[in-house]
Design a protein around this nucleic acid. Structure first.
Lengths: 239, 239
DNA sequence: CGCTTTCCGTTACGCACTGTTACAAACCGT
DNA sequence: ACGGTTTGTAACAGTGCGTAACGGAAAGCG
């Protein structure tokens, strides 16, 4: 598996797959438009797409940029539950609820497509493949969460960070970017929170992975030097 | 909020809600039978309902008993991702896959209903409320996982155990059992694994909660002495 | 544009909490 | 009654946390 064109994802404003806009995660976006009023939203870094507690009205589809979803407790504790990029759905976790269960925040400028949920439900009746795609997205989200539960429950700090970097690399590769050289879109604090660590620990570990010559780090810029070594450390056999 | 009939769930073979069998999680089970061939399966403690890697053929609905779902890595690491009881779905995490993503193991004797997935899909076309119920189950699973992440990521051992006990109590209450006095269905090891702790730590913490007179523990039997205190410790404002 | 302020990432150090190891007791099924 | 499993307790060790301090980048402001 080699990526045909490997460009460093340095700017969010220049996605390599802009020509794919007509393909909506394997669905015919034009057909979908007959049922669903799709609204585009430009987002800038730090901007909330939706807040926890706000009425749940629509799902969102990430066209470009990167967002984090944050679960928050009533006593102030918060937990980053995931990072969403081009091709990911947002808001599925709130299906069946009146109000959003978590918040979604843009980490950089980007664009999302708003898909009003009632219209989506209606469209599902006439487009069985949309129904299947939505259900699959939900199930995949569950599997993703379980994979991270496994990681957080069984791996130490180094292994968690290594796994995270490999996951980011894999996702960039899938989008056509380089899996060897990329820019992290989130702060150390967000990474740490997601991995159930402290940001100092993440910093320490990243520096250590650099010392070990598995990666090269300079702030948010990461270069993978020893992919196999990184996988071995992460406790992964294959990918 | 007081539960009308509070019985200690001492035996799995005598569920208090046996009369509810016709109500399928809010759906008409008789109508469902027109579309789906429902097969009953008796399970005994330790028995696998399905193994990770086995072909995914059906969803399951827990009628009685308690099961755990276990995610396992190819290198032997494993993670308990949840405990399912009466009224819960099993197998939803494998929707969209050819093979099961995790294993399901009975913790005690009980009964589950097998719902062949292809038939369920077909039934969804004619029963919108079934579709809604299934989607809601998926979304709820995601929210459950996120709640777990929040707990593991932000709480210490004592708070995690307290939260777990409160969650168990809440679920028993919903089923009509006592929330003040119950029998845990899982071993310390399973609890610990689920909470990303070691079983010795769980033991220590349970003993400490007993010392603090928040609960009374004797092996798997738990009596909640100070519900408010337990909630305060867990860092929960309300429930 | 240059200045200030704030935010972010890194590193050091001591320590608390949890993991580790070991062993004993209680429990369970046969 | 017996052997294996599960649970409880204790002593010790180590990972990751808390605090703090610093440098540099980014952002805000005049």
């Amino acid at each position: 598996m080699s990526t045909p064109v490997e460009t460093v994802a340095a700017t969010a404003s220049n996605p390599p797959h802009a020509a794919h806009e007509a393909a909506f995660a394997g669905l015919d976006i034009e057909q979908l438009r007959k049922y669903v009023q799709v609204t585009r939203h430009k987002l800038s870094a730090g901007q909330y797409l939706y807040h926890a507690g706000q009425p749940f009205m629509a799902l969102y589809f990430v066209n470009s940029g990167c967002l984090k979803t944050v679960e928050l407790a009533d006593d102030g504790r918060d937990q980053v539950t995931g990072f969403r990029m081009r091709g990911d759905f947002l808001g599925v976790e709130s299906i069946g609820l009146k109000h959003h269960a978590c918040s979604a925040v843009a980490l950089e400028s980007g664009e999302v497509w708003e898909l009003p949920y009632p219209a989506m439900l209606a469209a599902c009746r006439d487009m069985p493949e949309l129904q299947a795609r939505l259900t699959a997205a939900l199930a995949e989200e569950i599997r993703n969460d379980h994979a991270w539960m496994l990681a957080i429950g069984t791996l130490n700090a180094e292994q968690r960070v290594a796994s995270f970097l490999l996951d980011v690399a894999r996702r960039y590769a899938r989008m056509g970017y380089s899996a060897r050289h990329f820019i992290l879109r989130m702060r150390r604090t967000d990474m740490a929170n997601f991995l159930a660590l402290k940001h100092e620990t993440v910093s320490r570990v990243m520096s250590r992975l650099d010392e070990l010559r598995l990666i090269e780090v300079e702030r948010r810029e990461v270069r993978v030097l020893d992919d196999a070594g990184l996988r071995q450390l992460a406790g992964v056999r294959a990918c």
